[in-house]
């Protein structure tokens, strides 16, 4: 519409500034991670891989990575399964009180994590589950399930009903239609939900600190606790690895969303 060139310039400047604020500082970490200095300083002396070597060859960091992947993998598996099945149930059955189910499914998203941490600690102390990786994975599942649920539910709501109708009119029963048509076209959304569930677990600190007992810390917990002390540039290297993983997952989520749209939201040409 009829905006003057000045307004357009101001608008662009505003968007650029906010975008810089949101991403700039994080990207500085990438720059720092290639420093040759022993401490953080600006501008860093470039260029070395020494902090990456320190990360890769340090046993304690390795232990942290392994535990993070194990807990995150389990949490992803659990929350993707549970969350997608529930989203299917709400979208495709005659279940009553669907709004209540939805409210329950997203409740962990809005309750402060410290409550799950202290509560999980008291519960696990009673059940003798402090220091259990599976117990931690299930608590991470609770935190990840809302994302899976919301992503799969909103994808299901946008599926073109004529795809399912086509299967029905070709003689498939409802069950088979769901299994062979709805489920496969929704697969990208389910995987996207899984990516988010993994990221949630991959990023979780508070609950993990409370219920880990004497176990080795996970990656985010190790970063967190090394920040409270003197931060060595190795943290910058670890953080850069985390940023790269995040960017890769973000691109994957974008691609998956495009597939989802192409497969499910318009009748596909066969």
């Amino acid at each position: 519409m009829g905006d003057t060139a000045n307004i357009r310039r101001i608008r662009f400047l505003l968007i650029a500034l906010v975008a810089l604020y949101l991403t700039g500082p994080t990207l500085v970490v990438v720059w720092l991670s290639f420093s040759t200095d022993d401490v953080l300083r600006f501008p860093p002396q470039l260029f070395s891989w020494r902090w990456y070597q320190e990360f890769v060859f340090d046993e304690r960091w390795n232990e942290a990575v392994l535990r993070t992947l194990f807990v995150g993998g389990l949490a992803t598996l659990f929350s993707t399964t549970i969350g997608s099945i529930a989203a299917f149930g709400v979208a495709r059955t005659k279940l009553p009180a669907k709004r209540l189910v939805e409210a329950l499914a997203i409740a962990p998203l809005v309750v402060p994590p410290i409550i799950l941490a202290t509560g999980g600690y008291s519960l696990f102390a009673k059940l003798d589950m402090i220091g259990s990786n599976i117990g931690l994975a299930v608590l991470h599942t609770v935190l990840g399930v809302p994302y899976v649920y919301l992503i799969v539910a909103s994808a299901l709501a946008r599926i073109d009903p004529s795809i399912e109708l086509a299967a029905l009119s070709l003689g498939a029963n409802r069950w088979r239609t769901i299994r062979d048509v709805t489920m496969p076209v929704n697969l990208p959304a389910i995987i996207t939900g899984g990516l988010f569930a993994f990221l949630i677990s991959f990023d979780e600190v508070v609950v993990t600190v409370f219920v880990s007992g004497s176990l080795a810390p996970t990656l985010p917990v190790r970063i967190f606790s090394s920040l409270s002390m003197a931060a060595s540039p190795v943290v910058a290297a670890v953080s850069t690895v985390q940023i790269i993983i995040a960017v890769v997952l973000m691109c994957m989520a974008g691609i998956l969303q495009r597939w989802q749209r192409r497969w499910a939201e318009a009748a596909p040409a066969m």
Partner: peptide, 19 residues
């Protein structure tokens, strides 16, 4: 789209509710 019966609905949300 396809709508399945109520018992299947309950069965599908029960793992979520259990966890």
């Amino acid at each position: 789209g396809v709508v399945l019966s109520k018992p299947i609905g309950f069965a599908s949300v029960s793992p979520l509710f259990a966890v």
